[in-house]
Write a protein that binds this DNA or RNA. Structure first.
Length: 629
DNA sequence: CGCCCTT
């Protein structure tokens, strides 16, 4: 059966299973969807106007204001461990938002109208004060707007899209939906929110986070990714799902098997969005977002997040968005002031011996009686295995992670690294984005990446949540074309650039596309700013390309933020794939029968909740678990 | 290019 037919048929037979306290309700976006017969959404360029397209307010000229935030007292109660939040880490973070009718930022979580259960979870996670990206992004999403956001690595992006998604799910109280075909209920799950990420481990991490934020809210979070048996993931879906966190391949598979439908999607978030739209992923993402029944832009809300957002990718991404706000928070790539970047000229033949020399010198410098965690990035999977072997043979406890390993081995490697059992992790770019590994002291770019953005993401594995970190890059003759881009990244982060590297950069001027960072102080700039005539062709009567785009920029002093550094006791599980023991025995599978309310939710507290899912039979306990503590 | 992404 063709896709459209499947969708059409199941849509006509959608049944809304009312949650206990709410009457049946058909969301507006689905009414439209049904009327269209579920035809696939083919976006055009420029994108269709969103709901607010014709309600744009009077023109506001480009304005730059300076704002000093009130100092918010930061207390981390009950946090007696040795982690220290660096209060000064995020001072002078530049913020720029472009688009129409930009909702103002908030200064505290209290200003955001979120439900009490969510606020409680925020407190439980010891989030005292929103990070800059959270302060700006949450109000935008809460206001119903589409968003393209650039924020430093390690600055709290996950929560920035999870909070408002959970909050709006609770506000709207979407029913769990089931469909009926020929009088028989299908096994299709209808999530209302979808979060996509480029790697399995990152999807797991996002799931664990989202799960903790949704504790005692009744919001159901399920993760689906490849390399693991489908059965448990199906089972979790059958128990009902509000938020589905997934990697693209497994999601497509599940949709084609008619176990997941995107027809009810109201909120779509792409994490590492530039990667998701880059070569190798774009086709799959377009298929998921545009050709598998998802409501089109304007009838769903779309959020794209990354630390980097090159112009060409922004252009692709705008297909998915409607009247969006572009937000950039913080300098290029990470809390880079916190990462000491070094570059060493090392020829390929000498890299191994040089690495071992480097590792020897830092061996003695571990903290808290444990060796410092060192993450070594290489170019290829084979190279990862080879280097792992070489290091191990020479007395350096190393383990490799890459896409040729089976999932169990990938997660085992990550766990072994996080626990300190194997304090050296040799990784391909599977580990370069998004993974929050506490206490990574040193990132070594053994093979310099082909794309400077990958460099930014890789070094962002250290220096997280206000902690400092170190990054060392081995730079060889082969890498000369990237010298200029590297110099620019380092200068943005106020790093000392070795003179030989500056010389290399000059020698290779013009030999490679100019850096995308040249024009902006920030992680990216709104590509619409040079193309407003194209994007808003009919709204502008006076010919001023900027006249209807409200723009503001804040330069402010955050005084640090309450990013938790010691919440790993919460992070120790996440409930992936094993709430079966709570539900299975007394509740038959079915989307709404299991919808839990705050009162009947089984676990006694968030720790118990989080701990439940460790050590299930497939070994997929948390891989986001605590590092040292 | 190789890296990731269903079986």
């Amino acid at each position: 059966m063709a896709w459209a037919d499947v969708l059409s048929e199941s849509t006509q037979n959608l049944t809304h299973q009312t949650r206990p306290t709410q009457p049946a309700y058909l969301p507006p976006h689905l009414r439209q969807l049904v009327a269209r017969g579920g035809r696939s959404n083919r976006n055009s360029f420029p994108p269709p106007a969103g709901p607010n397209f014709n309600q744009r307010q009077t023109a506001t000229p480009y304005d730059i204001i300076t704002e000093k935030l009130d100092q918010v007292e930061l207390t981390v109660d009950g946090n007696n461990n040795s982690d220290v939040i660096n209060l000064d880490a995020y001072e002078d973070v530049p913020v720029e938002a472009t688009g129409s009718d930009i909702p103002p930022a908030v200064k505290s979580f209290g200003e955001i109208q979120m439900c009490e259960a969510l606020n409680e979870n925020i407190k439980r996670r010891k989030y005292v004060k929103p990070t800059p990206i959270q302060r700006h992004a949450i109000p935008i999403v809460m206001a119903g707007r589409d968003l393209m956001a650039c924020a430093q690595t390690g600055s709290g992006k996950t929560a920035a899209f999870c909070f408002p998604i959970i909050s709006r799910i609770l506000r709207d109280r979407f029913d769990q939906v089931v469909s009926v075909r020929n009088g028989v209920r299908t096994r299709i799950a209808y999530p209302t929110s979808l979060i996509l990420s480029p790697t399995r481990e990152l999807s797991c991490q996002i799931h664990d986070e989202a799960k903790k934020f949704s504790y005692q809210t009744g919001v159901k979070v399920v993760v689906a990714y490849g390399g693991a048996p489908m059965a448990q993931q199906f089972y979790n879906l059958e128990k009902g799902v509000d938020i589905l966190v997934a990697t693209p391949g497994r999601l497509v598979d599940m949709i084609e098997r008619e176990r997941v439908s995107l027809k009810m999607i109201k909120y779509l978030a792409l994490d590492e969005a530039d990667r998701m739209l880059d070569m190798g992923f774009e086709h799959q993402i377009r298929k998921i977002v545009q050709q598998m029944g998802m409501p089109p832009p304007g009838t769903r809300q779309t959020m794209l997040f990354s630390a980097t957002f090159p112009d060409d990718i922004q252009r692709l991404a705008s297909d998915f968005l409607s009247n969006y706000i572009f937000l950039t928070v913080g300098k290029v790539g990470s809390s880079t002031d916190l990462i000491a970047q070094r570059v060493e000229l090392v020829q390929d033949m000498e890299k191994r011996s040089h690495l071992m020399k480097l590792l020897s010198t830092q061996k003695a410098n571990g903290s808290r009686g444990k060796p410092a965690l060192t993450l070594v990035f290489v170019e290829t999977k084979r190279g990862a295995d080879a280097l792992e072997h070489s290091l191990s043979m020479n007395g350096f406890p190393a383990i490799a992670i890459h896409g040729d390993k089976v999932q169990r081995e990938r997660e085992r490697a990550l766990r072994s690294f996080k626990s300190g059992a194997t304090p050296i992790l040799v990784a391909t770019d599977v580990a370069s984005r998004g993974l929050d590994i506490p206490h990574v002291a040193h990132v070594i770019n053994f093979d310099f990446p082909k794309d400077i953005d990958d460099y930014v993401h890789r070094i962002g594995r250290t220096g997280r949540a206000g902690n400092s970190g170190m990054a060392t890059a081995f730079f060889s003759d082969k890498n000369m074309p990237l010298a200029k881009a590297l110099v620019e990244v380092m200068q943005e982060a106020k790093q000392e650039v070795p003179s030989w590297l500056s010389q290399c950069a000059q020698n290779f001027v013009g030999s490679v596309r100019s850096s995308r960072y040249g024009r902006s102080k920030f992680g990216g700039s709104d590509f619409r700013s040079s193309q407003n005539d194209y994007y808003y062709p009919s709204s502008n009567s006076n010919g001023d390309a900027n006249s209807f785009v409200d723009t503001y920029a804040n330069v402010y002093n955050t005084g640090g933020y309450g990013a938790p550094t010691s919440f790993d006791n919460y992070a120790s599980a996440g409930g992936r794939s094993s709430n079966a023991d709570y539900y299975g025995a007394h509740n038959p599978p079915g989307p709404y029968a299991h919808y839990s309310t705050a009162d009947d939710y089984p676990p006694a507290n968030i720790d118990a909740f989080a701990a439940r899912s460790n050590g299930n039979e497939y070994g997929y306990g948390s891989i986001v678990a605590s590092g040292w503590d």
